[in-house]
Computed example of a mutant assay.
Amino acid sequence: MSQVPTNLLYTKEHEWVEVLSDTKVRIGITHFAQEQLGDIVFVELPKVGAALQADDSMGSVESVKTVSDIFSPVSGVVAAVNERLETAPENVNTSPYGDGWMAEVDISGPDALNALLKPAEYEALVGID
C-alpha cells in the first residue's frame, strides 16, 4: 500500500514537492515510485546552481530493475542536493519522504506550484481509495 502524505504536492510522474517557504521547495520521488522501481542502487542528482524547467529531466534513479528519469516538478534553480544519496541511495527506498529527498529548488515564482496534484488527486492517480 502506497503512502501519500497530505502535506505534500505531487506530479503524474510520481515526484513529490514539499513547500519549505514562499520561494523554496524540496523534491523527491514518491513511495509508489520507489516501490515500482525496486531496490535503488544509484541516484544521479542535478548540480547546485543548475537551472531547471518544469517537466524536464533533473537526474535519474537506477534500481536493480531499470533506470528512470527524475522530472523536475517546478522551474527554478537548484539550491541544494541530498549528498547522502551518493553513498546511501537506499534511503530513497527506506525513507522516500524523509532521508530520501533529492533536491531543494528556489522556484521561479508563485505560479510554479499551480500544475501540481493535491494528495487526493495523486491517490486517485495511483489507485488508492
Rank of each mutant, 00 (worst) to 15 (best):
S57Q: 14
V78G: 00
D69A: 12
L116N: 00
I40C: 09
F32L: 03
V41M: 08
A80Q: 05
E44A: 15
V19D: 03
V126I: 15
D39N: 10
Q36T: 11
A115W: 04
N7T: 13
A54Q: 12
I27A: 04
K12E: 14
L8F: 10
E62F: 08
N7M: 04
D129F: 10
V126Q: 00
W101Q: 05
P96L: 10
G98W: 02
M102A: 10
M58L: 13
V92Y: 01
E83C: 01
E15M: 05
E62I: 12
M58H: 07
I27E: 06
P46T: 10
A54G: 07
V43K: 02
S75K: 04
D56G: 02
V77E: 14
D129N: 11
T87I: 05
D55Q: 13
A54S: 14
V43L: 08
T11A: 01
T87F: 04
Q53E: 15
V92P: 01
G100S: 08
A103N: 11
L52F: 00
T94K: 07
S60E: 14
E62D: 15
D39A: 09
H14D: 12
N7F: 03
F42S: 09
F71Y: 15
A88R: 08
S21M: 10
P46G: 10
A50F: 00
T66H: 00
S95Y: 04
A115R: 09
S2V: 13
G59N: 02
G109N: 04
P46V: 10
E44T: 13
D55W: 06
E123W: 00
N7H: 13
D39Q: 08
S2Y: 13
L113H: 03
D99C: 04
I70R: 02
L20N: 11
M58R: 06
E44M: 06
D99G: 11
K47P: 00
A88Q: 13
A120S: 13
V4C: 01
E35L: 12
L117I: 00
Q34P: 04
R26E: 10
Q3L: 15
S68C: 04
M1V: 15
I27R: 03
P46K: 04
L9A: 04
A79M: 03
A88S: 13
V126L: 02
E90T: 09
A88T: 14
P73S: 06
D22C: 08
P89L: 03
V78S: 01
E121D: 15
G98F: 04
L125A: 08
T87D: 15
S60H: 11
D39F: 07
T66D: 06
D99H: 05
S72H: 00
S75G: 14
Y10V: 01
L9T: 00
N7R: 06
G100Q: 09
V61Y: 12
E18G: 11
I29T: 08
Q53P: 03
S95F: 03
V61K: 11
N93I: 10
V105Q: 03
V41N: 06
E90Y: 11
E44V: 13
T11Q: 02
H31A: 13
M1P: 11
D39S: 07
E35S: 11
E83M: 05
G127M: 09
S60Q: 12
E90L: 07
H14E: 09
E35D: 15
I107T: 05
T66S: 13
P110K: 06
G109A: 05
Q3D: 12
A50P: 00
